[in-house]
Amino acid sequence: MSEALNAGLALFVLALAAWMVVARDTFAAVVGFVAYGLLLTLVWVQLHGVDVALTEGAIGGGLTGAMLVAAAARLRRTEAAARAERPGWPTRAAAALLAGGVTAALAVAVLALPVPAPSLAPETAANMGATGVGNPITGVLLAFRAVDTLLETTVVLLALIGVWSLAPDRVWGGRPGPRHRADPNETLAYLARVLPPIGLVVGVYIFWVGADLPGGKFQGASIIAAMWLLAVMAGLSDAPPISRGWLRLALVGGPLVFIAIGAAGVATAGAFLAYPDGLAKLLIKAIEWALLPSLALTLALILAGVPERPAR
């Protein structure tokens, strides 16, 4: 039964991907993407990656999907001009040939992967004790490969700076995105009152269980960011001006705490990002707690977009 389910899932995923490629209308393709992200979440569960499924649902499908939907609606008027530039059939044939070739090469590679598969699972298992956490993914992300995670938080922050850098000079330091008007009788305002408290609890919960079960800071942070944006879009709240000192501090706070704890490791445990015996779980938790608000804020501001209004 599981095989049939997998086969059905794979077919469905491919059909949706093909749809996104051939759809005439960009908006239709984007809606396809939202559904596609959801199906991928099922794929991750079938591939025994519940942590990845959570991330896909929250960031890959969820936030990216919402971003694409908003962009597609705004870019409507550029559609016709773009469609006129569709390349002729020789280009398309060449593209199909070469892209098909890549698929063929990858398929050969997949079939030629060695048996038994190499794995770092046994090594991870043997060393999990030293980290004090129960979820191996968290162990890898915050102990064995902690530097990747540190860089990742920097990547998110750089993306935010990149988005901000697109602001017109005149409104530098202003508030991102349009101001949404609140209409107290709207369904939207109601939804934005009811959902965020629940979402906040779920976000913190997903973050909290991350130490021992699937979950973690990125997944939790994106749920919280989404809930805050919901309130902004309903007009119940407004994005802060990006020049605020507290905002800047809150954004860099998480990464700075991470680096500080990492640097302390040089003195206490002999290496950058090392944790002294017995304190590992505590320090990992401290890093995660520091990162959660910074990440939630960064993700939310990335989604809120380019500053458009003066701070007043």
Binding site: E123, T124, A143, D148
Partner: peptide, 13 residues
């Protein structure tokens, strides 16, 4: 050669 976090490859970096 600097082992980040004191973890040697292949597990560490």
């Amino acid at each position: 050669v600097y082992l980040l976090g004191g973890w040697a490859p292949p597990l560490g970096i």
